[in-house]
């Protein structure tokens, strides 16, 4: 189920999975729910930008010989 949600199935497995969920309402519903959960996390978790001071210090680091 997770592998289907995350696109980690092989082509054959994917085909088999799709055939199955068209016949099985329980798995279909679980698949949709898992997909929804994944997209909520993906979209709703706030992302922060690294502070400029941190970016500068990293860039400076690569300008200095070790």
């Amino acid at each position: 189920m997770s592998a289907a949600v995350d696109g980690e199935l092989t082509l054959n497995e994917q085909e088999g999975f799709e055939k199955h969920i068209m016949k099985c309402p329980t798995c279909f519903s679980e698949f949709k729910e898992a997909q929804k959960t994944k997209s909520i996390i993906k979209e709703k978790i706030t992302r922060f930008k690294a502070p400029q001071s941190l970016v500068n210090s990293i860039l400076k680091l690569t300008e200095t010989p070790l």
Partner: peptide, 18 residues
């Protein structure tokens, strides 16, 4: 090395920070 590092690694700074 610096150039490769900047191209490969520095772009991931926001993801790493999060």
């Amino acid at each position: 090395k610096q150039q490769e590092f900047q191209e490969e690694a520095v772009g991931h700074i926001n993801a790493l920070y999060n």
